[in-house]
Amino acid sequence: MGAGYKLITLADARPGQVLSDVLLDRVGQVLLPKGAVLSEGNLAALERHGVAMLPVVMDKLEAPDPALVRERLERLFRHPAGEHDSTARARLRRYVEQYRLGSEAAP
């Protein structure tokens, strides 16, 4: 997989990080373009504009925690399926689980 992004708080942002998307203010004006390298000045200006979160580029995507993925899927698929859709429901759950865990294997 290529580089991804992570949404971080302005307090966690550090100079040298790169924006993964264009950053807009509350009325849609461009504050910083996609690919902008953050500086101390940028961060101070973003604070004055009331920016709370920033999408920054990550070098690699963090692997999801399989236990958390399965716990979330248990909640999503918690309602018992009727007999007529149990096969489709089980197949959908397998596809979603494989997608979220990044599995390449076909169900």
Rank of each mutant, 00 (worst) to 15 (best):
L68P: 04
T9E: 07
R78G: 07
M58L: 04
Y5C: 00
L32G: 04
E62R: 06
R70I: 09
R75V: 00
A106K: 13
L38C: 12
R14P: 05
D85Q: 12
A90P: 03
A3I: 10
A81Q: 04
A36K: 07
E74A: 11
P33N: 08
E104A: 14
L46I: 08
D85C: 10
P15K: 05
H49V: 03
L7I: 02
L46T: 00
A3F: 02
R70F: 09
A88G: 09
A36Y: 05
L19D: 07
G35T: 03
R78K: 14
S86E: 05
P15N: 00
R93P: 01
P33I: 08
L61A: 10
D25F: 14
R91E: 02
V57Q: 09
G4Q: 12
D85Y: 06
Q98M: 02
L54A: 04
L32C: 04
V57I: 13
L54T: 05
L61I: 01
D85W: 02
V30C: 11
P80Q: 15
L73A: 14
L38S: 09
A88E: 07
L101C: 07
R75D: 02
M1R: 12
R93D: 01
V27Q: 12
G2E: 14
V69C: 09
L10G: 08
V30H: 00
H79S: 04
K34R: 07
S103F: 07
D65C: 10
D25E: 14
A81D: 03
S20V: 13
H49L: 07
R48W: 05
R89S: 03
R75T: 10
L46H: 06
D25S: 15
A52G: 06
L46R: 05
E40W: 02
V30Q: 06
L23P: 02
M53Q: 11
R94F: 09
S20L: 15
D25Y: 15
R26K: 14
G2D: 11
D21A: 08
A106Y: 14
G16N: 11
R91Y: 01
L46N: 04
V27E: 10
A45G: 06
G82V: 08
Y99Q: 11
A44W: 07
P80H: 15
Y99T: 14
T9C: 02
D59Y: 13
L76P: 09
A63C: 07
K6E: 04
D12M: 00
E97N: 12
P55W: 11
Y95Q: 00
K60I: 09
F77A: 12
A105Q: 02
L43V: 10
G102T: 09
G102N: 07
R78W: 01
A81F: 03
L46P: 02
P33T: 00
K34G: 11
D12I: 06
L7Q: 01
H79M: 03
V37D: 05
Q29N: 15
L7E: 06
M53V: 06
R94A: 01
E40D: 05
G16H: 11
Y95M: 11
V56H: 06
V27H: 12
A88V: 05
V57W: 11
V27K: 12
L31A: 13
A106N: 10
P64C: 00
V96N: 09
R14V: 01
T9F: 11
P33E: 02
R26D: 04
G16Q: 10
H84D: 12
D59I: 13
V30Y: 06
G102R: 00
L38D: 00
V37W: 01
P55T: 06
L24V: 13
P33G: 09
F77E: 09
V69K: 13
L46F: 04
K6H: 09
